[in-house]
Deep mutational scan, measured.
Amino acid sequence: MTEYKLVVVGAGGVGKSALTIQLIQNHFVDEYDPTIEDSYRKQVVIDGETCLLDILDTAGQEEYSAMRDQYMRTGEGFLCVFAINNTKSFEDIHHYREQIKRVKDSEDVPMVLVGNKCDLPSRTVDTKQAQDLARSYGIPFIETSAKTRQGVDDAFYTLVREIRKHKEKMSKDGKKKKKKSKTKCVIM
């Protein structure tokens, strides 16, 4: 069974824990209790493949930012979460993405942009803004509501699919490099 290491990042209060708990335990946590770091595991079937999701729910508070490099190193894919009623959390996505790329030393890291709290009427981040940002990053965008469960499975499952595509691409690139290195030079 394939294991996928997913990391949920975003500013404090955007609903990272609520999304994760909704996926794992099928219930909505409405009281806000700032996370330092929590880890969850769940076995699911995605596109006919049974897999184990190892999900790291991270601290959004700035005082825990020193811990970010460590979990970013171990993560295979990242859910970059903002709240649709919090423009600052949307603007912060850029910083999370840049930090992930720096730590992973790669421009090509599996990510999904997630606009959470889409059940709320007080939207300050337009869907088109988020779609445009995701398009500019070359990553999928999904709106979710941890409260109603809308888009929750889709967000995590899409990230797994992005990781699969990335692994497939990397193995193809690896095979191309191996083929090239088999060419021999004969000096007579």
Rank of each mutant, 00 (worst) to 15 (best):
E63R: 00
E63Q: 04
Y64L: 15
Y64M: 15
Y64Q: 13
Y64T: 13
S65C: 07
S65G: 11
S65H: 07
S65L: 07
S65Y: 06
A66I: 15
A66K: 03
M67F: 03
R68Q: 15
R68E: 14
R68N: 15
R68F: 15
R68M: 15
D69E: 08
D69L: 00
Q70K: 05
Q70N: 02
Q70P: 03
Y71S: 10
Y71L: 15
Y71K: 00
M72Y: 14
M72I: 14
M72Q: 04
R73G: 06
R73V: 08
R73P: 03
T74K: 03
T74H: 15
G75W: 06
G77H: 02
G77M: 12
G77P: 01
F78N: 01
F78Y: 06
F78I: 10
F78A: 01
L79E: 00
L79Q: 00
L79P: 02
L79Y: 04
L79V: 11
C80L: 14
C80I: 14
C80A: 05
V81S: 05
F82I: 05
F82E: 02
F82P: 01
F82D: 01
A83M: 04
A83V: 03
A83F: 01
A83K: 05
A83G: 14
I84S: 14
I84D: 15
I84Y: 15
I84A: 14
I84R: 10
N86K: 05
N86A: 05
K88S: 06
K88E: 12
S89G: 08
D92V: 04
E98W: 00
K101T: 08
K101W: 04
R102G: 05
R102H: 07
V103D: 06
D105W: 03
S106Y: 11
S106K: 10
S106D: 12
S106I: 09
S106E: 12
E107R: 08
E107N: 10
E107Q: 11
D108K: 05
D108S: 07
D108Y: 07
D108I: 06
D108Q: 06
V109S: 04
V109W: 07
V109K: 00
P110N: 04
P110R: 03
P110M: 03
M111K: 04
M111Y: 02
V112P: 00
V112F: 04
V112L: 06
L113F: 13
V114G: 01
V114A: 04
N116R: 01
N116G: 11
N116T: 15
N116C: 15
K117F: 15
K117G: 14
K117Q: 13
K117R: 12
K117S: 14
C118W: 08
C118P: 05
C118L: 12
D119N: 06
D119A: 03
L120K: 08
S122D: 11
S122R: 07
S122T: 12
S122C: 11
S122Q: 08
R123H: 11
R123E: 13
V125N: 10
D126W: 07
D126R: 06
